[in-house]
Design a protein around this nucleic acid. Structure first.
Lengths: 233, 233
DNA sequence: CGCGGAGGTGTACGTCGTACACCTAGTGGT
DNA sequence: ACCACTAGGTGTACGACGTACACCTCCGCG
């Protein structure tokens, strides 16, 4: 029988438990709270114990990304390339949004893990299966950039609006004075979701807008038999 | 007269000198080397002295971004919206590339400084001056994302290739085995610049490719009188 | 003359990642 | 039955880091 003489003996750690705990910690306490020390405490273990399962903190972060990538749905087969890729990327986006810290972490990784490469490889494959030339596929992947992950950098990182409508109005007046054009489009966003100065933009809409713009562009180029030869200066 | 009794008395620091020194330090030693301690040493001063000119490290980083944004050319007037914006963004890109660390730092800033808002405001204004509706301009800015700054996230962060061609070939064979689609497009990139396995991609080409794809898309929507009303589900 | 403030100093604290030596319990070989 | 080996967990320690706080030292102004 399993020995548990002196109280409940902890099941031994393993890489997977460490990574999942790290993800959970980041989810509910923010990614900044993910220090080796905090994480160890969360697991009821001394900090150095973690190093038996991950080489160092960088590898821990890589592993956390892998966990998120693991949540992305597999490709839907039977669909045309465009909607298949669209669905897949939107699935990636859903995974990312479940873990708001993950886009920042993904950006920060200096080199892709095998799991990441698998994902990218499969996206590339979907373009190829759709009949895209190697050449076009290459450039198209670049054009997608971080959007393959389902996110775009926020230009205005959505600072939470002040509660007091008085203060809010004042802040807005100042904005309008100094940055009239920004104020104008901020207004438009607010009107769209019919609140006074709403929660800002509908991020999902913005994402889909940009994604579809790109995919449509890709489709056109593909149909035209675009090659980089013709485009080079 | 200026006192300099005991040897050359250092000219007093000021915010600007601090920021410029920080940029210079990041340029030649990498952004990770920009610690308050290192920076202070570079300026021949004790770490805490910096806090008389910058509130804290976050503000220092903000200031460094401002320095870079200050290097972006002002809008070229007299041109149509499309080429004016194109030029401006490519100028931003040139500024960024002069300081390779800056895209990472820009990404990391939680809220935009006035200088950044000025830049964004002026880009928005350029779309508006081109006749874009407030509505379309808004979405178009989102679609641009980090590309207004002149960068896209690198999906494959360009790890320096190993010197030894033997090792290089082996690495490539493994890549080809596990990630055939990626290998394929990597090959294509290599062929384009006609080296065996070249320095990888022509980033400038990739950037312009994606930027123009977007700008063309924007133009089409603009001409069609696109509004978000019609696009909503 | 004196005093206030701008600018620079020195010390100290808490946090971080992690190197290194150590311990411990369970396993396989003989 | 023994012992060596090892995977996993511990404890201590070091050198970064950002920065709070008390202090000093001038300069210019009244």
């Amino acid at each position: 029988m399993v020995q548990q003489l002196d109280g409940a003996r902890r099941a031994p750690l393993n890489r997977d438990r460490v990574l999942r705990a790290a993800v959970a910690l980041a989810d509910h306490a923010g990614v900044d709270a993910v220090s080796m020390r905090n994480l160890a405490q969360e697991l009821g273990v001394v900090p150095m114990a973690l190093y038996k399962h991950v080489a160092n903190k960088e590898e821990l972060l890589d592993g956390m990304v892998d966990v998120i990538v693991g949540e992305i749905d597999p490709p839907a087969d039977g669909a045309d390339w465009k909607s298949a890729i669209r669905q897949r990327i939107l699935s990636a986006r859903r995974a990312l949004l479940r873990h708001p810290w993950s886009s920042r972490v993904i950006e920060s990784r200096p080199k892709p893990t095998p799991v990441v490469l698998d994902y990218l490889n499969s996206i590339v494959g979907m373009f190829r299966a759709g009949g895209f030339s190697v050449d076009l596929t290459h450039h198209v992947m670049h054009a997608l950039g971080s959007r393959v992950w389902g996110f775009t950098q926020e230009l205005f990182p959505a600072s939470p609006l002040p509660e007091d409508p008085e203060v809010q109005a004042a802040a807005f007046r100042e904005l309008a004075g100094r940055y009239p054009h920004i104020a104008e489009i901020a207004m438009a966003a607010a009107h769209e979701d019919e609140s006074v100065v709403g929660q800002g933009c509908d991020d999902d809409f913005e994402f889909a807008f940009a994604l579809d713009l790109l995919l449509d562009g890709f489709e056109t180029l593909h149909r035209q038999g675009w090659t980089s030869r013709g485009a080079l200066s």
